[in-house]
Amino acid sequence: MTTLKATLQDDLTAAIKARDELRSSTLRLTLSAITNEEVAGKSARELSDDEVQKVIAREAKKRREAAEAFAQGGRAEQAEREKAEGEVLAAYLPQQLSDEELSALVAEAVKEAVAGGAEGPRAMGAVMKIVNPKVAGRAEGGRVAAEVKRHLTG
């Protein structure tokens, strides 16, 4: 079975051969972020696919935030570039949950937490504990937290 990192490396080689500058530079940066993560600890190690996915998600989030910053700064060209890089990375991530799917998962978790005796401000943590494993990389933490708050105050 091919690892996610190996897939990224193969896709990078293909992008270089195809002279796809956007794709090759995005994958190159992402692979170096993965390598940095691998050598960050006390001893070098190979990341699992889940860990690689977390690095990709973090890189994709950086692109989204940079795109917003560039757009607000009136630098449309750079914003487009960041957005395009984010889309390249999104292809390697699990399909993101729609608002409806996320809302349904959160509603279920809220019921579960309340049934378990959680209420008030403490319910937030309890609900997050239940919903996070179900969401697992398919929605950003901030988006999940906002949805949980909406359900708890709603």
Rank of each mutant, 00 (worst) to 15 (best):
M124I: 13
T7I: 06
T30D: 13
K17E: 14
A146I: 04
A139W: 12
G142R: 08
A66V: 01
K61W: 10
G154C: 10
V114E: 13
A6E: 15
E65V: 01
V39I: 15
S24G: 03
G120F: 00
A71T: 12
T26F: 04
L93G: 08
Q95R: 10
R150W: 09
T3W: 05
A146E: 15
V127T: 09
T153A: 11
R28L: 11
E68P: 00
D20V: 04
E65N: 06
E100T: 13
T3L: 05
H151L: 10
L47V: 08
A14C: 05
T13K: 07
G125F: 06
K62A: 12
K83I: 08
E140L: 11
E80H: 11
V39M: 12
T35W: 08
R63S: 01
K129T: 12
Q9G: 08
E112N: 07
A107L: 11
L22N: 09
G154Y: 13
L27C: 10
T2P: 08
L152G: 04
V52N: 02
R45I: 04
A123N: 07
K42I: 11
K17V: 07
E59R: 14
A90Y: 03
A79K: 09
L29D: 15
E119A: 06
E82P: 01
S48D: 01
A76W: 07
R150L: 04
G86F: 07
L105R: 06
Q9P: 00
V55K: 00
R19C: 02
A139F: 08
V106Y: 00
E85M: 12
L12D: 07
L102I: 08
E140A: 14
V106C: 06
T7F: 08
A84L: 08
L152C: 10
K5C: 01
E46K: 11
H151S: 03
T3V: 10
L47N: 04
P94W: 13
G117D: 02
N36V: 00
Q72D: 13
T35G: 07
K17L: 05
E85D: 14
S98L: 05
L29M: 09
K149G: 12
E140T: 03
D49G: 07
E119L: 03
G137W: 14
E82W: 09
A57G: 14
E140H: 04
V39D: 14
